[in-house]
Write a protein that binds this DNA or RNA. Sequence first.
DNA 1: TTTAAAAGTAAACAAACGTTTACTTATTTT
DNA 2: AAAATAAGTAAACGTTTGTTTACTTTTAAA
Lengths: 198, 198
Amino acid sequence: MRPKNLAKEEAIRSIALQIISEEGLENLSMQKLAKAANISPRTIYIKYENKEDLLIKLFIEEVLGNYEKAILENFDPKMAFADGMKRLWLNTFHYLKNNKPAFSLIRYGKSSPLLNKAFQEKNIQQGAFFAPIHTFLKTNVRAGLIADLPHDVLRALIFSPIQDLVAEYFDHLDRPLQIITEEVILTSCEIVIKGILK
Amino acid sequence: MRPKNLAKEEAIRSIALQIISEEGLENLSMQKLAKAANISPRTIYIKYENKEDLLIKLFIEEVLGNYEKAILENFDPKMAFADGMKRLWLNTFHYLKNNKPAFSLIRYGKSSPLLNKAFQEKNIQQGAFFAPIHTFLKTNVRAGLIADLPHDVLRALIFSPIQDLVAEYFDHLDRPLQIITEEVILTSCEIVIKGILK
DNA sequence: TTTAAAAGTAAACAAACGTTTACTTATTTT
DNA sequence: AAAATAAGTAAACGTTTGTTTACTTTTAAA
């Protein structure tokens, strides 16, 4: 039998992300994607059941999977709190800043009911994404080092600013004065650490 | 001449938001909207040039306009820093929690290139949204009370957590234990204040 | 009371949509 | 070398898309 062309699978994913990033999820169509990837629409349906299946797999497996791997690089839940935080923030900053298409779909993951629902289900059924971060926060709460708040609340306090800072990095990209630098990220991280430490 | 039916205009806006919130921006169509609002598609085009115009006006004028008004209620840039922060956080929490359709479109404003671009342009050309907050932060930076960082960075540090907490409020709505309460919001606000104060 | 004109409707337009049908190509196994 | 079969294509399916055309209704002003 004929073996599948992995380059075409990769093209489907990367070009879908590119369209979403440049034109928006609401302007992604199967036919546009096929044309841009230089394949027949039918080829997409070999790998994916339908458009929703494509979007969900792209989001959960491709984007969130890679994002998780990148964020957790050189991170260990047993690190000292401030060190762990800085590692996570810098990993997030560098990965997202160099992967705008992935970042775009991640943002849609919080807007689109389809993607948000898929994320919740995955998070409940198959063990949470970013489990080491869960451990990290729990450990530091138990050690009495940081505020004793539910995990989801801590996550919002600690990681939403860095995601918004990356968004600002992209928004300011074409302006003369680039304000979101690694130095600003580290300063911001220290501010967040200061707030959360008891 | 026949006067325009304001109830129909209002229906267009509120039902559009409802569809976006329940089915996603990517599933809003002019025909679906017309049918749900019990009007002819043509009627939408009396008030709006086209679909993009509708979305932009809905986002900028309707949603962000009301959001701004609600957030700034009983707020004064001259308030003490902690008081101002708590006022802004509580206003945000109460308004968004009671206006899920508006919150949905606000989230799309950070995902969708169309809406994000419209926001940037409006923010630059016609004076910034949330100008009193700008003043508030600037004043407190100048007074040496809070970290001296660019306004956009301060905004990310201070307001992205509350928006994410509201998202979690909605995500947890149907679960037995509601964790995002006003008490949690105030505790979180104090943590953010502690971090940002010099 | 007629008239001007915007508001509004029902139905239709071409184009694009998600998806499938009918078929060809390429490769492994026999 | 033949048979089996998944990968892949080109073209089309019926539906829905955003938008418009042709027309009717409703009101304020003349």
